[in-house]
Design a protein around this nucleic acid. Sequence first.
DNA 1: ATTGACCTTACAGTGGGTGGAAGGATTATT
DNA 2: AATAATCCTTCCACCCACTGTAAGGTCAAT
Lengths: 141, 141
Amino acid sequence: MNIGDVARLSGLPAKTIRYYEDIGLVQPLRSSNGYRAFRQSDLHKLAFLGRARSLGFSIEDCRCLLELYEDRNRASADVKRIALEHRDRIDRKLAELAEMRRTLAHLIEACAGDHRPDCPILADLAAEDTDVCEPKCLAGE
Amino acid sequence: MNIGDVARLSGLPAKTIRYYEDIGLVQPLRSSNGYRAFRQSDLHKLAFLGRARSLGFSIEDCRCLLELYEDRNRASADVKRIALEHRDRIDRKLAELAEMRRTLAHLIEACAGDHRPDCPILADLAAEDTDVCEPKCLAGE
DNA sequence: ATTGACCTTACAGTGGGTGGAAGGATTATT
DNA sequence: AATAATCCTTCCACCCACTGTAAGGTCAAT
């Protein structure tokens, strides 16, 4: 299979597949014409990577997961640990975004959004009484 | 004020402040010794930027917001539009992350996480149920 | 005079690719 | 057989928003 075939079959852009070879995630053979020659197992790996990436796993996580996948003596605990850490990262990101959204929604609600210059959003961003890393707030609340 | 002072007062790393100068977000003066000389207004801008960034606004959004902030003839509608678009981006990201988390949580729950190799997480990532097993394209090589 | 804290620039690296140029190989059409 | 279209190759640059590091200049205190 050429790169175009595995790209279609795996759903990954050819560019991404070349990049994955670059960083050592797949090692396709080479045909005599210099084209990459992908085996079934390469396609399988790429599909695995595509799914892992779509769950948000980092490339390094993917590398570990792929290693574990190919290790018949793995312990599922090792896989689960990676997944749990990733879930916790997602949870932290979700909390961070939710907080941003909450603040943003308040400001949006307060803004008339008309032709006048008065704007609570800008007023909040420009507020001089609260520093970005305000020690007073941490102490007070 | 030197860069260390505004870094402390704004909560932004000095590196970031230099970067912001690089991309034209602030234009501090220069002392005779070559040090950046920040005015109150520069500090104010940097604090503004820090708060906008902490709400997740992109640098380009921040540039627009700063421009609007300094434009006394602005319409609050312009500010609100930026904020609304940003809120929608956050909402899309939240939905994406929530979906990842949901799938991940299912897999984690199904995984024993012990010494045995059997692992539903890996099984799911390796699932061949999609277009991976297309015999026609694979036969020729 | 020397330490140490502060400042400067410049370049490289992060993650995870994406875009494009320049050129070789293969396939399809004329 | 020539040509065009498509596919493949490598290489380099770029995206975002910084962050790290090296090599060196400046300043205040001892």
